[in-house]
Write a protein that binds this DNA or RNA. Sequence first.
DNA 1: ATAGTAATAATAATCATTACTAATTAAAAA
DNA 2: TTTTTAATTAGTAATGATTATTATTACTAT
Lengths: 121, 121
Amino acid sequence: MRYSHQREIIREIVFSTNSHPTADWIYGEIKKSLPNVSLGTVYRNLKQLADEGIIRNIQDGPVARYDWNIEPHDHLKCNVCGEMIDIQVPNEIIKDTVMEKYDFEVSDVEITLVGKCNKHT
Amino acid sequence: MRYSHQREIIREIVFSTNSHPTADWIYGEIKKSLPNVSLGTVYRNLKQLADEGIIRNIQDGPVARYDWNIEPHDHLKCNVCGEMIDIQVPNEIIKDTVMEKYDFEVSDVEITLVGKCNKHT
DNA sequence: ATAGTAATAATAATCATTACTAATTAAAAA
DNA sequence: TTTTTAATTAGTAATGATTATTATTACTAT
Ligand SMILES: [Mn+2]
Ligand SMILES: [Mn+2]
Ligand SMILES: [Zn+2]
Ligand SMILES: [Zn+2]
């Protein structure tokens, strides 16, 4: 993968926030410095960065979000403000139980807890 | 919600399979008996049935799937054959831990384990 | 039977994402 | 340093899933 200015800025944007941004939000950000980038470029580079394991892709319903944090972790999704919060759930137990009980080779555990964050009490 | 023949058949189709069918698959099935149904009718009725709690909506990446089993349960997704298998994971522990640790009012826990099912050993 | 309104088929619109293409550009080869 | 190359780009068209619109049809209560 050869260097590209666009990809470097996209990477920096993803690494600059904890908000698990969407491609569209990143597009809005990169246009501030490079007004001529196209949305296709954003999608293409996010895909490349995710394929290389530099960033992580997380699916939030029908839209893809991106995360600089590639360590295994789970998420809380607030259905009031839409925010996604990182959480750590001990899922090795789940994984092991399922592999044994269902004879299934688990490669990834995706846990999202949906509810209301503490801003809306 | 008043009775409709289309909705009744859609409900029966969802209840007839364990495959967590998509709207499009259901559309193909209902056309066998009612060739003139429109895809919009399928979507509208699936939404109504899910809103009424008669069936359950599960998000599989960018596509919606439907499940006659409304009891709280989780899924295994095989990334070889695409099949979704019902599993029971004791998630009350997770829920309670997260509610306390993160001060988050959890209404739903979504767990999907991705991997390879025992048909591809 | 009539009126009121929920549901329908057909179709257009939307939204997120991917595909295509001619022009540009980083990096390798000469 | 100048070609040569192939990856990358901007711009745009196309796709796939879903939702919205609209004129028509069909239950249901009076
Ligand atoms: Mn995260
Ligand atoms: Mn299920
Ligand atoms: Zn919130
Ligand atoms: Zn399988």
